[in-house]
Design a binder for these strands. Sequence first.
DNA 1: CGCACCAACTAACGCGCGTTAGAAAGGGGG
DNA 2: CCCCCTTTCTAACGCGCGTTAGTTGGTGCG
Lengths: 353, 353
Amino acid sequence: MGTGPVKRRVTQDDVARAANVSRSTVSLVINGRAEGQIPEETRRRVLEAVRELGYAPNVAARMLAQGSNRLIGVFTYQQRFPFETHDFLYPFLLGIERQAAVEDYNLLLFTRAPKGGRRSVFQDGVNVLGMADGAVLMGSLTDRDELRQLVAEERPFVYVGRRDVPGCAFDWVSSDYRSGAREAASYLLAHGHRSICFTGIYFTEEPYRDRLTGCMEAVAEVPGAALHIIPDHVLDDAEAMYRFITDRDATALVCTGSRILARLIERLAPFGVAIPEDLSVVALSDEGGEFPLGLQPAHVRLNSVQVGAEAVRLLVERIEGRRKEPKSVLVPCALVPGNTVATINRSDHAWSS
Amino acid sequence: MGTGPVKRRVTQDDVARAANVSRSTVSLVINGRAEGQIPEETRRRVLEAVRELGYAPNVAARMLAQGSNRLIGVFTYQQRFPFETHDFLYPFLLGIERQAAVEDYNLLLFTRAPKGGRRSVFQDGVNVLGMADGAVLMGSLTDRDELRQLVAEERPFVYVGRRDVPGCAFDWVSSDYRSGAREAASYLLAHGHRSICFTGIYFTEEPYRDRLTGCMEAVAEVPGAALHIIPDHVLDDAEAMYRFITDRDATALVCTGSRILARLIERLAPFGVAIPEDLSVVALSDEGGEFPLGLQPAHVRLNSVQVGAEAVRLLVERIEGRRKEPKSVLVPCALVPGNTVATINRSDHAWSS
DNA sequence: CGCACCAACTAACGCGCGTTAGAAAGGGGG
DNA sequence: CCCCCTTTCTAACGCGCGTTAGTTGGTGCG
C-alpha cells in the first residue's frame, strides 16, 4: 500500500509562484493559448520557470479537467502483450507505434492484467481506457457485449480487425482478407489447380471467416474446382494430413499464416511431398518468412503494419473531432509470387493420376 | 480543439442520491472501507444503486485523488522506438513489459518525437517523464548533462545499461558484459586459440567498453595470447577483413552481436573461410540466431529480457518508497556452447602454419 | 470629465474521487 | 438532567488542471 512518498511533484502553482504570475497564466502559456493573450515577455518567464522547476503536467488531472492528453491507449485481448515477434498481433503494434509518432501522440499500453479471469477493458467495473484520449483494441474478443458497452460509453476507440456486432457501429480497420484470399485461390486456379486445401482456425471470428469466404468465392467461379477445409485436429497429425491431401487429389494449399505454412512443410517432408512439384502453396501473411531449401513462399501480403497505422489515423480523426460517423477501412492486400506455386500437370503428378 | 464529446457518466453523486446517502458513504462502500463504519443494510442499498445505475469509477479522478497513476514511462534515446525486432533494444522492452504486468503498472511509451533535433526527455522545456510515476530510460545518450539534470529533479528513473556519470548516482541495470566477454574469450583460450579478433563499435559507451575490457582481461591472463580489435571500417570491407584476420594468424573471433556475426560469416564465406575449422566464433547476444549450414553459434547469453524486467523491479521499489539509495544491478550472462568453436590444431590450420 | 475600449491578467469553478474531522443520533450511567 | 461513548453518517478539503467570467490599469475619444 506504500503511498509513494515521492517528492511532491511540481505543479502549475509552483511555476506560477516562481514566475510571479497566476496559475491561470501558466496554464494558458503551457497550452499554447497565449496568442494575443499573454505578451512574449511573460510567456518567456513562465517557460523559464517551467524548465527550472522541472514541471510536467499531470496526466490524470489533465484528463479529469478536460479529457485530453495526447495519449493513445492500446489494449489487447490477448493474454500477454503482443511484443513477441511470433505473435500475430505484433505487426499491428509496429504500425500503431509508427503512426502515433507521426500524429504526435504518446502510447499508453494497458499491460495491467486482471487478477485471474479473461482480459477485459472493464477491470473491477472500471473502464481502464479512461486514462487515454482514445484507444486501439485488438485481439480475439469472446464477449461481444463488451463492445456494446464500450460503444455506449462513447469514448473513441478503433478495433483492429473487422468485428461485426449487430446494432452497434464503431470504427475498425482490417486487412482485406476476403479479397486477399480470393486472389490467393485465383492464383492457384490460374495455374491449373482444381483441388485446393485450406487451413484456418478460429472460424468464429470475422477475419478468419473472411479468409474462407474469399477462397470459396474464387473456387465457386471455376467449374470443377473444389475447396477442402482441413479440420484443426488434422493439422496436428502429420499422417492424417498427408492422407487428407492425397485422398482428395489436392495439388494446392492455402495457408492462413506463414508459421503454419512452415510447420506444414516440415511435417509433410517425411512423406516425400515436394514443394511445389507435389504441392503448391500460398500463404496469407505479412512476410514470406524464412524457409529452408531456398523456398520463397508465394503469399498475399496482409500489410498488417499499415493496418495498425490506419487504426491510429482513424482514432485521431475521431479524437480530434474531425469525424463523427463510424468508419471502417479495408487495407488492400498484395499478391507476392514466390517459387512455391507450380503449374499443374496432372498426368505426371504424384498422386493425381 | 474538439473537446471529447464523452457522454456524461454516472458519478458517485448520482449513486448517493439514488441510495439516499452522502457521496462519502458511497465512496467508503465502494472502496471496501465499510468495515465497522457502515452497517450492512446501508452497504447493500448503495451497492444496489451502483448496479442499477451502472456506475463505474473514473480512472483519472481516482488516480488524481490518490496521487499515483500506476504508470511507468519508457523513454528511448534512439530515433525510433525499439519495436523492431532487429533493434538491439527490443529485448529490453520485452522484459519491461513483462515485469510491468507483474507489478501491475501500465506502460507509457514516449513516442512523441521532438520537432527536429535529437531526442530528449525535455520537450518544450517540459520533462515528459513527469507524466509517469517513474521511468525506464535506454539507448545511447550523447548528452550526459541530461542525466545530471534528471537526477536533480529527483524523479525516479532507471537506466538500462551502465552509465557512469561522475558525481551523479542513479539506478541502472545492465548485463554483466565484462564478465560475459571474459568468459567468451576464456572459452576460446581454453580451446587453444591464441590470436583472437574482436569486433565492437561505439566504444564511448560503457556497455561496449565493458565488452572489450572483459576480453582483454581474459587474454592478459594467458601468456602468448593476443587480442586484435577489428576497426569499424574494416568490418564493411570483406577482403580487408579477410586480410586482417589472416595477417594476424587469428583463429577465433568474438562478436558483439549475433547479427554482426551473421554478416561476417556471410562475407567471409566467399574466401573459403569455414566455421569453425578455419575460424572459431563466439557471439555476445541474446539468442543464437538463425544460421545456415546448421551452425549454432556459441554465444554468451546476455539475458537482456531479464535486464528489462530487473529495471522495472528497481523502479517500482523506488516509486513505492521501499528504497531510497541508488542501486545498480549486473545481470549475469551464461555461456551457451554451440558448434562454432573448434579446438585449434595449428599444424593443420589453413593460415596458421 | 465621462465613457468606451483594450491589453493583460486573475479568481473561481468544476472535473470525480479519497479521505478525515467531526456532526448527529442514540444509549446508558450517574 | 448532564456527561460521555458509540455508531452512523456527512461536510468539506484537496488532488492538478482547463476554462471563463471578470477585474485592473491604462489609453483614446468625444
